[in-house]
């Protein structure tokens, strides 16, 4: 198992949930975080990181399959 896959998947899910919650959830909870919608921004960071990790893993397994086929 390529470890990047579960790591990527976990962070993609975390990121997606946070981004959606930040975009559509209540807005009056951000007084704590100095008025910044941290869920939206940090969620986006986690989402990108997760997708990149998972993407690298998938690309690697594709290359491997190709190498085997040749």
């Amino acid at each position: 198992m390529d470890l990047r896959l579960p790591v990527g998947a976990l962070f993609a899910i975390f990121g997606a949930l946070l981004t959606l919650f930040g975009a559509f959830g209540p807005k009056d909870i951000y007084e704590k975080s100095l008025g910044i919608n941290v869920n939206l921004y940090w969620g986006a960071v986690l989402l990108v990181f997760g997708l990149l990790m998972a993407g690298f893993a998938l690309a690697a397994s594709k290359r491997e399959a190709q190498a085997k086929a040749e």
Binding site: F14, L18, F21, G22, G25, I29, Y30, K32, S33, L34, V38, N39, W42, G43, L46
Partner: peptide
């Protein structure tokens, strides 16, 4: 607990 709103607090 002081600075994280629900959501990020979960992380």
């Amino acid at each position: 607990v002081h600075f994280f709103p629900t959501g990020l607090l979960g992380v």
